[in-house]
Design a protein around this nucleic acid. Structure first.
Length: 223
DNA sequence: TGCCAGGCCGGGT
DNA sequence: ACCCGGCATGGC
């Protein structure tokens, strides 16, 4: 696991993630970007900033329909408006609206709580924990699966938790490392060959396969 | 033009 | 425990 990180960092450099001004903005972005291009999400964030809605209280006070219209450009806008509402309600109810209090809770406890909030699944919960709270959890996304599958390290059926465990067992428990690693995977992610595609020379890890990890048919796979 | 983007929910087996 | 349809806009 560490070797992949070293290659990506050497070839693409530090990413300075998450691209947001505040912790709350990280959380909003994490919910907005679910299966949605970051480009569209950025516009929605700008709209929310202009409307001065990038903090818990104002976001609770605006109507859900008005909120939906503001984030229309990011897709799934009605669903996402509901999700944002669900999070700020959770934050107020459990932590009097304070992110400091929320992130003061033990990692696994908070993770379970976040997963119980409507609209927050594993990846979103972990993005919030890591990028807004600096808790040491590894964020797994589509690109992560794609990268590992391509290198024969996971199967289709492996679950989110299994893949997260793979990273967390193989790496030192350092939020900064998890942060940079996931950022590099997303940054280069579009170029990872999809599972069924032939291996291509644009793959960010092309030419890098530790001897012990080379799939039997790797060489013939080259195009 | 059709497919994809930094997933998740709810209902069904 | 999985499997699937639905959610929705903008870019290429």
């Amino acid at each position: 696991m560490r070797e992949y990180f070293d290659v990506l960092l050497r070839t693409h450099g530090h990413q300075n993630w998450w691209p947001a001004r505040t912790r709350f903005e990280v959380i909003v972005g994490a919910i907005l970007t679910q299966n949605t291009s970051w480009r569209n999400v950025e516009r929605a964030i700008v709209a929310l900033r202009r409307a001065k809605l990038l903090s818990p209280r104002p976001l609770e006070e605006v109507s859900e329909s008005a909120l939906a219209e503001l984030i229309r450009c990011s897709g799934y806008y009605r669903q996402t408006a509901r999700k944002l509402k669900a999070f700020v309600a959770f934050l107020r109810t459990n932590y009097t609206g304070s992110l400091d209090k929320m992130f003061g809770v033990a990692t696994n406890t908070l993770r379970e709580q976040l997963l119980a909030v409507h609209g927050i699944g594993p990846e979103t919960a972990d993005s919030i924990l890591l990028y807004a709270g600096e808790h040491p959890v590894f964020v797994v996304d589509t690109y992560t699966r794609r990268m590992l599958q391509r290198h024969g390290l996971v199967e289709e059926r492996d679950t989110y938790e299994e893949i997260r465990g793979l990273f967390e067992r193989s790496l030192p428990t350092e939020p900064d490392l998890f942060n940079e690693y996931h950022a590099l995977i997303v940054h280069t992610g579009k170029h990872f060959c999809r599972p069924k595609e032939p291996r291509c020379s644009q793959c960010p890890l092309h030419g890098f396969l530790p001897a012990t990890l080379v799939p039997v048919s790797a060489t013939e796979d080259e195009r």
